[in-house]
Nucleic acid binder design. Sequence first.
DNA 1: TCGGATTACGTGCACCGTAATGATC
DNA 2: GATCATTACGGTGCACGTAATCCGA
Lengths: 283, 283
Amino acid sequence: MIEIHLFEQLVAFASCGTLSSAAEQLHISQPALSRSMQRLEEELGVKLFDRQKSRLSLNKNGELAVRYARSLLMQENSMIEQIREFDRKRRTISVGSCTPILIPDFVSLLSSLYEGMTISTEVTGDPGLAEHLKQNKYHLALLHEKPDEDIYYSLPVEREHLYVSLPPVHPLADADGLYLKDLDGQTFLLYSQIGFWDGLCRQKMPTARFLLQQDYNVLGELVENSAFPAFTTDYVMKRSRQESDRIAVPILDEEANVTYYCTCLRSEKARFKAVFEHFQAER
Amino acid sequence: MIEIHLFEQLVAFASCGTLSSAAEQLHISQPALSRSMQRLEEELGVKLFDRQKSRLSLNKNGELAVRYARSLLMQENSMIEQIREFDRKRRTISVGSCTPILIPDFVSLLSSLYEGMTISTEVTGDPGLAEHLKQNKYHLALLHEKPDEDIYYSLPVEREHLYVSLPPVHPLADADGLYLKDLDGQTFLLYSQIGFWDGLCRQKMPTARFLLQQDYNVLGELVENSAFPAFTTDYVMKRSRQESDRIAVPILDEEANVTYYCTCLRSEKARFKAVFEHFQAER
DNA sequence: TCGGATTACGTGCACCGTAATGATC
DNA sequence: GATCATTACGGTGCACGTAATCCGA
């Protein structure tokens, strides 16, 4: 067995051309490198250099050895990287969600149940979210539909109902309930990261215009200080202590009534047992 | 960069199951191995083991690391082997010859011209001998025909004429010359390693029988003390000081008059310049 | 004379082994 | 008590750096 730092030094010499510059690059003295290369030759039992007193150069053996050494060093580096990456992945629980609403509570739940783990979350309107569980892109998914396939395990965790938030002067503000199609053609303030709701709105209100807001606080300001209709939900209203003169009119479309399911691969059910037990205890 | 002996020790632990037995196998003390594994974890920045006080076992990271480490060790070993093999090949000049006759002189010529090189020789009747030069099986070939292709460089180095060696009482012993077909059907003493001559004899004398001898000296004894015809050449006779009452009758077939060519790939002509110069000077 | 390689030489420390400790069965 | 891992500790080999030497442009 030959230590890898000898090969590293060989490669450095090949790149630099002289022992002195290679030694400098490696932050060791020139004699140390000279002896290392002698030792490498000795341990291989093979001459790697042409020695012309004041000039050291690779011979054919040396050139071959350098090619091999480069490849070996690449492999070791990549190996180390992959072990670290594997460990990192093992220390993070990755969550994909169809809605941003549940994320804060869900993250703090996971953090308390899985101490030391990193929780990474992503909100997406992608209807193929459950597929990503199979590909291990996510370990857990928050879906608004229970997936069919038997490879998944799901548990309902929350219900949410959609409301349209109207200023009192709005012509529809005194309605008891509205269908989305009744609102088509209007201009809405809309949060940009709302997951699957986005698709629903665009489908049911094809001619509506949406003023997308990246910042949740900015959106709140605009809602309070404009006459544009916006959307909210019972879940949001319950948690927001904010006073508002807006009127919330329930949306009557069936799709506006949503149950969220916490889902994982059935094979990982045991790993997330604590999560599911938490939600079962909640009901 | 992580030294490879740490991975070697990791693999040993994986194979043995405990630090103590692995340490024994590695011929180091148990504490040394314990510290090595701690250092490996530290340098990787990744926990590789489950530590249950009195039991050390690989965790998932560790199992992955062991798989990678095995592959890395394999690669290093194979790399070292290949470098050594490459060097060994570089230090030997491999000669393929259609005849054993020229070998001794040729080997001593090469030895004196290429000091320190190992000369390996092989006698073969294979008509595709020149092909082997292309595949680098041989560096030099001694052929009895000049190959056509332009990728070869050839120089005639010797001529040889075939004789049949008959006891004086043999009915054909007083002939001035003979064709091989005249000798068909008889039983010959024949050296087994005669390269291309073998094919020639069997072709021209399909019903002859050959008493093959592996040992050249034994063959000589038998020739002296039997009445079986045998073959010899002017080249052999010139060099053998041995008295004999045998009569040498020249073979008249055209193929029995041979010129030997020293051949190499044209791309290697420079490497063997000294050889060719030697033969050019000789004429 | 300078730059580069090798040799000589003294030194420090990294790693080892022995011994002790802790822990589990 | 036996086995196994870790910690403590003292000794040493070996690889390093400095300095000297040699060599060639």
